[in-house]
Amino acid sequence: MTKRALITGITGQDGSYLAELLLGKGYEVHGLVRRASTLNRSRIDHLHEESMLHLHYGDLTDGVSLVNLIREITPHEVYNLGAQSHVKVSFEMPEYTASTDATGTLRLLEAIRAAKIDCRFYQASTSEMFGGTPPPQHENTTFYPRSPYGAAKLYAHWVTVNYREAYDLFAVSGILFNHESPRRGESFVTRKITLGVAAIKLGVTDHLTLGNLDAVRDWGYAKEYVEGMWRMLQHDQPQDYVLATGIGTTVREFLDYAFSHAGLDWQDHVRHNQAYERPTEVDALVGDASKAREVLGWKPETEAEGLARLMVDADIEQMSRLLGR
């Protein structure tokens, strides 16, 4: 039997890697994409000839489209990766963030429940739900979100637990700590840094402007983390899992890894602007993924330094092509 999977957020970083993984495993993959006047599918363009990939217009803020899509596809697995995922933006667009990230998850769960199909559901939770709680953070750590994004994701996390317990739905949450790649959005700090390194190295600019350099994050490689998502839905029992490297790295250290890999000193090129800082900062997020290692056999291979080098190389190569060099 060919398994069918639905991925919301398929055009994003995680969605594109997950689509590759599932197609490689022989899945029929359906992706939810938002209608826009311009196409934003660069991360999955290389998959356009895959006969087992099907894209559908829809939106997590439109419950009718979700109900219709679930009934049409009758997926065996649903991966809810769609979200307004930028923390700083969530302070500027809190209502939209809540409608997409919180209520959007509820709409999707309700669509699955109403369709009465045998379906396994993955919710993309986030380390931002821990917020102000000191590390290390694991599945039983107290939540303390410090942004509209973290609060919206916490609602989605708990409503997933509720549907699992109330309706016996196979529903799990993956509490993923920061995971990056060359496909990361350009406004996220790691990608902003590696793009900045590429631009400075190639003479396009001579500086990069950032906010808080003291924030500590647990950075892993997104391509490895989607494997963990898939493993969660293959297990016999629905449970929630933290995915993380267990290593804390400051933004300053990530800067050093990225710039030094290109033969540069970040202190010669980085400027500070308080406008890039959050109204309420999250000082340190470092995960304990012991449960995922023991139960799922999942473990990350790439740590922050190797990740920085990988991303710098990719961005220098990409920018060189654009510049015709």
Rank of each mutant, 00 (worst) to 15 (best):
F130C: 02
S125L: 12
S90R: 11
Y167A: 13
P135H: 01
Y149T: 02
S99N: 15
P75E: 04
I175P: 03
M129H: 02
H46W: 09
R146D: 03
E139T: 12
T141D: 11
K153R: 08
V67P: 02
M52I: 00
A98E: 09
T141S: 15
L108H: 07
A171Y: 05
D62G: 03
T160S: 01
A124C: 13
A156Q: 00
E180R: 01
E50L: 04
F143Y: 09
V172G: 04
A124S: 15
H86V: 10
A124L: 11
W158G: 00
S147R: 11
I73H: 11
E92P: 02
A111C: 10
R107A: 14
L53K: 03
D45Q: 11
A83I: 10
E50Q: 14
L176N: 07
V172H: 03
Q84A: 11
Y155K: 02
N162V: 05
R146I: 06
S42F: 13
N140Y: 09
A151Q: 06
M52S: 10
L66W: 03
N178Q: 05
P135N: 08
F170L: 10
H54T: 05
V67W: 09
A124N: 09
I44A: 01
V67K: 14
Q123Y: 10
S125G: 12
I112L: 12
F121K: 04
Y144F: 05
G104S: 09
H179I: 08
A111L: 10
H54F: 05
A124E: 06
E72M: 08
T126Q: 07
A156D: 00
T105I: 09
N162F: 11
P148Q: 12
D118T: 15
E165M: 07
S147M: 12
L47C: 09
A152D: 01
V89R: 13
L154R: 01
V159W: 00
S173W: 02
V64S: 11
D101E: 12
Y79L: 09
T97C: 13
N178H: 06
L55D: 02
Y122D: 04
T100P: 04
E128T: 10
A156R: 00
V172C: 14
I117N: 05
Y96F: 14
M93C: 09
W158L: 07
E50I: 04
R41V: 11
E92V: 11
D168N: 15
K116N: 15
G150D: 04
K153H: 03
E95K: 11
R120S: 13
H138R: 13
F121S: 06
V89N: 07
Y149G: 10
L109M: 06
R113C: 06
Y96L: 15
T74I: 09
M129K: 02
S42Q: 12
I73D: 11
G150P: 05
C119E: 10
L60D: 01
M129P: 01
L106P: 02
T141H: 01
